[in-house]
Design a protein around this nucleic acid. Structure first.
Lengths: 248, 248
DNA sequence: ACTTCGGAGAGGTCCGACCACTAGAATACA
DNA sequence: TGTATTCTAGTGGTCGGACCTCTCCGAAGT
């Protein structure tokens, strides 16, 4: 994991990495134009672009056509776009994604109960109110649902876990974004969110974790039911060998 | 997340994605040589390469100089090399990584207790034995330590969580790979691993989770102590604004 | 002021040549 | 015969330089 010499790609990556680690490059900053930067690093523009592409794929750089290349701003993203690809490749099952989400979010809720601040609680309260107000409109409801969970992730005080959650949930939505839930379910869902909110606000970590687990378990079975009645196929496809994960 | 038309990169990515999703491309398979493939897709070799580079950065493709380009084999990797970069960029704290690891591995241990199979238990047992045998050699000990945790991840039956764990632990080792622990600590560590093993083998999920949590908490304080006595600097550097993570 | 137009500057794509690496075939040697 | 060496075809890596497209913003026109 060193190879600073060969491989132009790594040369670029390490150079920029160094600029970031020494604080010379911060989120939102712009790097020099490709032609100029390439000249400075004594490499071709093509090679420079390879390196930048690598960093952009990992969410570290943000390339904007006609504008420039910037260090990524906003919340960190860990392999956000890769999980669905990897999922198709390794045949991830839907229940595995739900399980991962359930585990992450439950702990996130517990942490939020311990470390959340007043403005987080205020946001959560507001989103819950909006959820009740939009039970008749699944599209709008979903927006507040997502925001609710996102606020909890922020309130947990752990951006790494928050990023992991973001990765999984986006892959989950990617898989089945249709799932137009019925209003009756949404009412129940809103009730659960309210319970979660109360547990967090009263700093009851154990309850927050428990209710969040219950909420996500229900959400999973709801989707499973809908999937079963529709097309009974799983995410996984037939594979050449099904035992790759068992080797050392 | 569609844009199949413009952007050559996405055209390539989506094409290969399609080949994977329809099962026409499986792990280990080789894609055509760049020149030929580019001609087939009616795009330049350069554009094809940017697309492949994107997929390679996400761990979906494996490009081997002088040999060919293959669909990634082996266990899935989610942003494995990106976390340390992202960490430097967003100022992830060491304790946050430890916390994420603790949460993931604790649940992984619990799941392993529920779903582990005989051959997993056998592997765990063997690694524990090796750990006791190498308490005097931190270098060798570490190998078995890592393998022990990896077997648990496999035994959990959830490759997604396993991949996330892999991502975090590798970033953790990346940060401080020196930490030559003392033999006395290793003996205690081995004892804890043995306890974890026993809990898992006896299918006691609660105990497995508890002991794993204890183990990782101890490991963290051990490293913290060592770090404090040495250089009292944190992973984070000074930032322009410290409130980026709080916006909607 | 407001709108429109155009140009500067940035990234995106392409071409075609050449370099570097790998694996296996062909060859030389013991 | 068996083994070591060399050669070579095939494949990814790098290069430079031409040209296209997109954004932004200021100048000109209304």
């Amino acid at each position: 994991m060193a190879k600073s010499d060969t491989h132009m790609t790594m040369r670029v990556v390490n150079h920029i990495r160094g600029m970031i680690e020494t604080g010379g490059l911060q989120p939102g900053d712009r790097i020099p134009p490709e032609r100029e930067f390439a000249r400075k690093l004594r490499i071709s523009r093509a090679s420079l672009r390879t390196g930048i592409g690598y960093l952009a794929a990992m969410g570290v750089m943000d390339v904007r056509h006609g504008v420039g290349t910037f260090v990524a701003d906003g919340p960190p993203e860990i392999g956000k776009s890769s999980l669905s690809l990897l999922g198709a490749l390794h045949g991830f099952q839907s229940w595995q994604m739900f399980e991962a989400r359930r585990i992450l979010e439950s702990e996130l809720a517990a942490l939020a109960a311990e470390r959340g601040r007043e403005h987080h609680f205020a946001s959560l309260s507001e989103e819950v109110a909006e959820m009740y107000a939009t039970v008749a409109n699944p599209m709008d409801y979903l927006i507040h649902d997502i925001r609710f969970h996102r606020v909890i992730a922020q309130a947990s005080g752990n951006p790494i876990l928050a990023a992991l959650m973001e990765t999984i949930t986006s892959a989950l939505y990617d898989e089945r974004r249709k799932t137009a839930e019925r209003s009756r379910d949404l009412k129940e869902s809103a009730d659960l969110h309210r319970e979660i909110y109360r547990a967090i606000r009263s700093r009851n970590a154990a309850d927050a974790r428990t209710v969040m687990t219950r909420h996500l378990t229900m959400a999973q079975s709801a989707q499973d039911m809908e999937a079963t009645s529709g097309e009974p196929k799983s995410v996984a496809r037939s594979r050449k060998t099904g035992k790759r994960a068992d080797e050392a």
